[in-house]
Design a protein around this nucleic acid. Sequence first.
DNA 1: CATCGGACCTGTTAGC
DNA 2: TGCTAACAGGTCCGAT
Length: 269
Amino acid sequence: MPELPEVETTRRGIEPHVLHRRVQGLTLRRADLRWPFPETLQQLVGERITAVERRAKYLLLHTRRGAALLHLGMSGSLRIVDTALPPRLHDHVDIVLDDGRALRFNDPRRFGALLWQAAGEVHPLLQALGPEPLGPGFSGEHLFALSRGKRSTVKVFLMDQAVVVGVGNIYAAESLFRAGIDPRREAGRVSRVRYGGLADAVRDILAHAITRGGTTLRDFLNPQGEPGYFEQELQVYGREGLPCRVCGTTLRHVTLGQRATVWCPRCQR
DNA sequence: CATCGGACCTGTTAGC
DNA sequence: TGCTAACAGGTCCGAT
């Protein structure tokens, strides 16, 4: 479900409700999601949440002793609920707060994660990540430098979280369309100038999608239960066989890196 | 090393 | 209407 804009929308949605609250308890209705919940996660209980951070597609609930590290996987979502509200199917975890409410983690496919990062440490999962696309470390020059000699396609390259974080299947397709680059093109054979355009496209599209509350295709809702509105602005994702909104050419489909890819054969070269 | 494919799961939808 | 197969927003890990 969530790429960077949806995770950031989730972060903004929960922050006012969990920041400065004390964690009163942890309800684990199963032993694992993608990985087992670690024993160390119990350190969260009794601590006050001092910051709610997003890094890549991870969320971190910081406390004095460390941080709860969450990933929503493909189908995860967070809601703020009254503790008395009975859990629904796939409501696997409650982080119970000191105001009678809880942060409730639902994840049907269970590709998500809930782990613990000790204070002063960086969790191994966060160590090999590339720069934030909306931060200062991301640029066309960065993409150009990392792509030299790369034989994989530019779309697979752009979705590599070691290159730049947060860009998943939707926003990779949309960014390449905006930049006019054929997603099948070899990453090492895209020019410096065109990577400049691609970096601009990634930044603009992600920032704009955040203002729209993310993309809701089937089930993404923010913590208040509202959908995102960027879906209405998608140019290529999910539009295989439909006319390009710019030139009218029928959009084509190809599978790259085992992911559905749609592009305009006229606008993207 | 870089690259590729499989694996992890359930729910929804397209197709017969 | 019912059954089955394909596909879905992610990403780790092992094989090549």
